[in-house]
Design a protein around this nucleic acid. Structure first.
Length: 244
DNA sequence: CCATATACCTGGCAGC
DNA sequence: TGCTGCCAGGTATATG
């Protein structure tokens, strides 16, 4: 198997042998495999993928873990090694809480409430884009969707979160849900090296309004899309459609 | 508590 | 053609 992931596999084999997978859940970008005793937390980082095959082929350099079951082999492949696998006795145990404890609400659940969202943002002085990326208030909004949602809401990414009026927060709330649902409906957006669960490569690229379109005309007003650096990450926005 | 910076990693690509 | 060097992403961790 390849070099270690972000952390060494924190999974004593004894915790897995003979166990049964009884459920699969997701929290933020963590995948939770519920076992009859304990659970596995998996993260795919930015380049990780899981493949379920009937047999166990020779592992390649970027394969990091095989979960061998009597129904097949779940293999974790992750070239850039930002992924992680952690075992925890329960969701409330320290190893799990260390990863899940800080996570904000699920954007596609009823928990994602406009009023609560507005209240949470009131406490954050940093730029709204950074607040979205941090994932402490709402999860699932990565660098691509943050730029896209802020464009949809007409909000400049640098605007301090606490400064947003309630109506603007409401627009952002709608935009986040919309951009995620739209992306889901189309199979997600992806890096060029993305491989779908069915093994197809690059089968979808989100039709981005601003992301990756620096210098190209805004689809709404034709002004050139700008890019900037925020917290070491590139942000794309339309200088006229998005107000501070 | 919050804010911001930094590290991690490698395939793909631009530029020479 | 072959090489070099930058960039992309999510998030834990460190530091102020």
């Amino acid at each position: 198997m390849g070099k270690p992931l972000r952390w060494p596999l924190g999974v004593p084999a004894a915790n897995l042998v003979g166990r049964q997978v009884v459920g699969v859940r997701r929290r933020g970008k963590y995948l939770l495999l519920d076992l009859d005793q304990g659970l596995l937390l998996l993260h795919l980082g930015m380049s990780g993928s899981l493949n379920f095959a009937p047999t166990q082929p020779e592992p390649g350099v970027h394969d990091h873990m095989d979960l061998v079951t009597d129904r097949g082999v779940l293999r974790l492949h992750d070239p850039r090694r930002f992924g992680a696998v952690v075992w925890a006795a329960s969701e409330d145990s320290p190893p799990a809480q260390k990863l899940l404890g800080r996570l904000g609400v699920e954007p596609l659940s009823a928990q994602f409430d406009v009023i609560a969202f507005a209240q949470a943002l009131k406490k954050r002085k940093s730029a709204i884009k950074q607040v979205l990326l941090a994932g402490n208030e709402v999860v699932g909004v990565g660098n691509i969707y943050a730029s896209e949602a802020l464009f949809m809401a007409g909000i400049r990414p640098t605007t301090p979160a606490a400064r947003l009026s309630k109506p603007r927060v409401a627009r952002l709330h709608v935009a986040i849900v919309q951009v995620l649902n739209r992306a889901l409906a189309q199979g997600g957006s992806s890096l060029k090296d993305f491989v779908s669960a069915e093994g197809r490569t690059g089968y979808f690229q989100l039709e981005a309004a601003v992301y990756g379109r620096a210098g190209e005309p805004c689809r709404r007003c034709a002004a050139p899309i700008k890019s900037m650096l925020q917290g070491q990450r590139t942000t794309f926005y339309c200088p006229t459609c998005q107000k501070p």
